[in-house]
Write a protein that binds this DNA or RNA. Structure first.
Length: 649
RNA sequence: GCUGCUGUAGCUCAGAGGUAGAGCACUCCCUUGGUAAGGGAGAGGUCGAGAGUUCAAUUCUCUCCAGCAGCACCA
């Protein structure tokens, strides 16, 4: 029998027979290690304890102490244990796939009856039984035909399809958890007793298409979360609770920012407080754009279908557009229009009016463009995914040669704005050529490289999303994260040589000839609506002072201070601070509580003492400590804070 | 759009086949109180919309609308 040499993490080498399993290796080291072992890393690959090792390799035995492999195995084995539990309780359930997710796992089932919340409790109990039974996990590699026949006999059509999808040459691994069988690439634990029975929780049921395909049957997805110990699970559940408190929909109500109602699904009724945030942000963006060399324009909402046909939207985007038909009944002339879902075709119209010279490029044309898109009902989400929204949109008309410099300039522009708004964790994704595309390979090569190089030149890395670009060009996406970790695309930059072509945009070059410009579609915030939603969640409602809709409440402690309260409010307003008086007949405790809940950043309390000394007692949101300040001093201080970051001296 | 769940007062929620309840918020009165809810009284609801079953429906059934979770979508 041939020998192989295994190298351990401490550098020691030992000889073993070829085909030795990590289980045997662990056994050879110590009894206790062999018991604690859950899997191995073999040349950096996560390896099942039962898989043979055929050649010299680096090896490390994993135990529950090793977080990454431990979590993967716990979650993956729990997926199997759950599927087993479900099939034991409802034997006619068909199993499909059950992968590990960020915090746990899910398993998709095909079953006629829907799972109810009560069912989840039953499944959980059965899972605990299986864990306590310490069912051994075993594995074998089967021939394709045998596996196929096995699943056909067992009435598992989804598994048959999975067997068929396993690429030629890849092993078809069969796993058993006790008497229950599943097709799985592994690795898995030694036995179900290695699972922590108190550190997982089933989180719910939802629908999911088989292979994500709308045309395939909808399955029932049962999701769970799992950790190595009860404390981590509890920590995660606490995080979810905290996240729920930051939900922009909840804070929007509590802070009286906006509301939505059934008569206008996906469109926002902005209340005075919310609209104050919106306009403050918009004023700030307008100043930034002016500084960065943009011109601002405004274009029509309702546009004849002819333009959408020319731009290609009528053919490719119609189902997402609000179509407006005007008939002879009340208009004498019939016309078919669409609410604009984006601003680009209109911007090209402005570009096209009058001759443009190469000297005009790059031409940066911005619009706070109100757009309407008929988003699918299931996609709507608070103010983050809506049907009516305003983009901080701009199109940069430029030459091929200018793409990289313009992109770099844009990234720096965006980074400065995100920093001003308190965002420091955001990522760039570069989406490259999709399968269906137009344009030559050389031009894709050039433009993709330009975007990548621009990121590097601006000092940022990026994640590649291969094949995710638009059919006409690659794009950068700038992504922020909401309170519960969902990612939202906000900023974007897309290279588009197509639309200028379709709408016949041109400029006169140095050579006196007509040339096509390229368009860069770009946005920093994406939409004001989505961005404000994220802003609220990021700051848990405690917005930076200059954006806070209600900045200061001046609260009387006794009604004898009322006149002074009004005087303080007037001073603050004169200093550019959004201040209001609270002279209600309530105790100071009550007022402090109410305005704290309302996320007012500063409460100024005034009673006899303050009136006499011409001071105020300052209480900042989140701080228990108060301090006394002279009126003139605090007015000056808050006046500075109320100034947007770009206007401070 | 799909699967499942939900819809009762401004908000958070309880309730039951015989046309409704709590807390907070709101209005008024008492209280002028020093940093996260002082006390009392009052007002407020076509129980998401429509249809059906029933002597009787807010409660049961169906359809629609909206919301929530996930999937799909996201130029």
């Amino acid at each position: 029998m041939a020998q192989i040499s295994l190298t351990f993490p401490d550098g020691n080498k030992r000889e073993y027979e070829q085909g030795v399993t990590p289980a045997a290796v662990a056994e050879s080291i110590s009894k206790s290690l062999s018991k604690k072992a859950i899997s191995a890393m073999v040349d950096g690959q996560h390896w099942d304890l039962q898989w043979p090792i055929e050649q010299d390799a680096q090896i490390a035995i994993n135990t529950l102490q090793d977080e990454a492999p431990a979590l993967e195995l716990i979650r993956h084995d729990l997926a199997h244990v759950m599927a087993r539990a479900v099939q034991e309780i409802w034997p006619d359930t068909k199993v499909t796939i059950g992968p590990v997710t960020e915090h746990g796992w899910f398993y998709d089932f095909d079953r006629a009856e829907p799972f109810t919340p009560e069912d989840l409790g039953q499944i959980e109990a059965k899972m605990k039984d299986i864990i306590n039974a310490r069912e051994p996990v075993t594995t074998e590699i089967w021939e394709r035909d045998r596996a196929r026949a096995f699943y056909e006999e067992n009435g598992e059509p989804y598994k048959v399809e999975l067997v068929d999808r396993i690429p030629e040459g890849a092993p078809i691994r069969m796993y058993w958890h006790g008497g229950w069988q599943d097709l799985c690439r592994g690795p898995h634990l030694q036995h179900t007793g290695q699972l922590p029975a108190d550190s997982f929780k089933l989180m719910g049921v939802s629908g999911a298409y088989w292979f994500g395909d709308v045309n395939r049957p909808m399955l029932q997805r049962v999701q769970g979360v799992a950790f190595r110990n009860r404390k981590d699970l509890q920590g995660y559940l606490n995080f979810l609770e905290e996240a729920a408190k930051r939900d922009h929909r909840k804070l929007g109500r509590e802070m009286d920012l906006f509301h939505l109602q059934p008569e206008a699904p996906g469109q926002i009724f902005w209340h005075p407080n919310g609209w104050t945030i919106y306009t403050s942000l918009q004023d700030y963006m307008r100043r930034q754009q002016h500084r960065d060399g943009y011109v601002e324009v405004n274009t029509p909402q309702v546009v004849d279908r002819k333009l959408w046909e020319a731009s290609g939207h009528w053919d490719n985007y119609q189902e997402n557009m609000f179509i407006v038909e005007v008939d002879e009944e009340h208009a004498r002339e019939k016309s078919i229009n669409a609410l604009k879902p984006m601003n680009c075709p209109c911007h090209v119209q402005i570009f096209n009016s009058g001759l443009k010279s190469y000297r005009d490029l790059p031409l940066r044309m911005a619009e706070f463009g109100s757009c309407n898109r008929y988003e699918p009902s299931g996609a709507l989400h608070g103010i983050m995914r809506v049907r009516g929204f305003t983009q901080d949109d701009a199109h940069i008309f430029c030459t091929d040669d200018q793409i990289e410099a313009e992109t770099k300039k844009f990234i720096e522009f965006l980074a400065g704005i995100y920093a001003d708004l308190g965002f420091h964790n955001w990522t760039i994704k570069l989406s490259t050529r999709p399968e269906k595309r137009i344009g030559s390979e050389e031009s894709w090569d050039r433009v993709e490289a330009a975007l990548g190089d621009a990121c590097k030149a601006a000092g940022y890395g990026f994640e590649l999303q291969e094949g995710e670009g638009a059919f006409y060009g690659p794009k950068l996406e700038f992504t922020l994260t909401d309170a519960i970790g969902r990612e939202w695309q906000c900023g974007t930059l897309q290279v588009d040589p197509n639309l200028p072509d379709r709408l016949d945009a041109s400029y006169i070059g140095q050579d006196g000839e007509k040339h096509r410009p390229v368009m860069l579609h770009r946005a920093v915030l994406g939409s004001f609506e989505r961005f404000i939603g994220i802003l609220i969640e990021e700051h848990a409602g405690k917005l930076p002072f200059w954006l806070a809709p209600r900045q200061v409440v001046v609260a009387s402690i006794t009604s004898e201070a009322d006149d002074y309260v009004h005087e303080v409010v007037a001073e603050l307003k004169a200093a550019g601070v959004r201040a209001e008086a609270d002279i209600r007949n309530e105790k100071i405790n009550y007022k402090v509580r109410e305005h704290s809940v309302g996320k007012v950043p500063v409460i100024l309390a005034v009673g006899h003492r303050e009136v006499e000394e011409r001071t105020v007692t300052v209480r900042r949101l989140g701080e228990k400590q108060t301090k006394v300040a002279a009126l003139a001093e605090i007015t000056q201080e808050l006046g500075v804070e109320a100034t947007p970051p770009d206007l401070r001296g």
